[in-house]
Nucleic acid binder design. Structure first.
Length: 172
DNA sequence: TAGGCCATCTGGTCCT
DNA sequence: AGGACCAGATGGCCTA
């Protein structure tokens, strides 16, 4: 796919002067209003939320928003780190072309499936006879594989994965 | 220039 | 109460 040189861009993080003054209200107040167990009528909830809102100075709201934004950024960074870690364990060829998120997930799924198929193939069908001692249950791997086969019976996983790798080689 | 991908902001909802 | 999670909106960067 594409190599992305996302260097400079990105809106300046929390530009305090330009942060929008959006109408905010107490999240917890609103949440209480909408939860099924809470049988409060909407009007009283609105009023309560409004009171909370008014009790916050605009500076308070601003600070809370900035803190919330920061937490969300950190959360997304952690998510992206996890994506990167996943990219690094999936064999693919064009290392200079970073996989997109959707490509990473799709490739990982097919890679796992192909590995599972390979393991089962190497075991030559013996896995299904393996009993976990004492439990009498069959191999979890085998059970899982059977379950997956039920959903996608005729797909050659290894072939599918190879095709996908090939497509990346082509720079699709 | 259009379309894909992404980071960030935001408000609603859920969870502890 | 407050943090985590989620999805929609927005706008920048890049490639074809």
């Amino acid at each position: 796919m594409k190599a992305k040189g996302k260097g400079i861009k990105r809106r300046l993080v929390a530009d305090k002067d330009t942060l929008r003054e959006t109408p905010t209200r107490s999240k917890s107040e609103l949440a209480k209003c909408l939860r099924p167990k809470e049988r409060r009528n909407k009007e009283s909830c609105k009023a309560a939320a409004e009171r909370t809102k008014q009790s916050w100075s605009s500076k308070d709201r601003h600070v809370r928003r900035l803190e919330s934004n920061e937490r969300e950024r950190q959360r997304m960074h952690k998510l992206n780190n996890a994506f990167q870690a996943l990219r690094e364990v999936i064999p693919h060829v064009r290392a200079e072309n970073k996989l997109s998120k959707i490509e990473t997930l799709t490739l990982a799924k097919n890679y796992i499936k192909s590995l599972t198929a390979t393991i089962l193939g190497m075991s030559n069908g013996h896995l299904q006879d393996i009993e976990v001692s004492g439990s009498g249950s069959r191999s979890k791997l085998y059970e899982h594989y059977q379950q997956q086969r039920g959903e996608e019976e005729h797909e050659g996983q290894l072939e599918k994965y190879s095709t996908q790798i090939h497509n990346f080689r082509q720079g699709s």
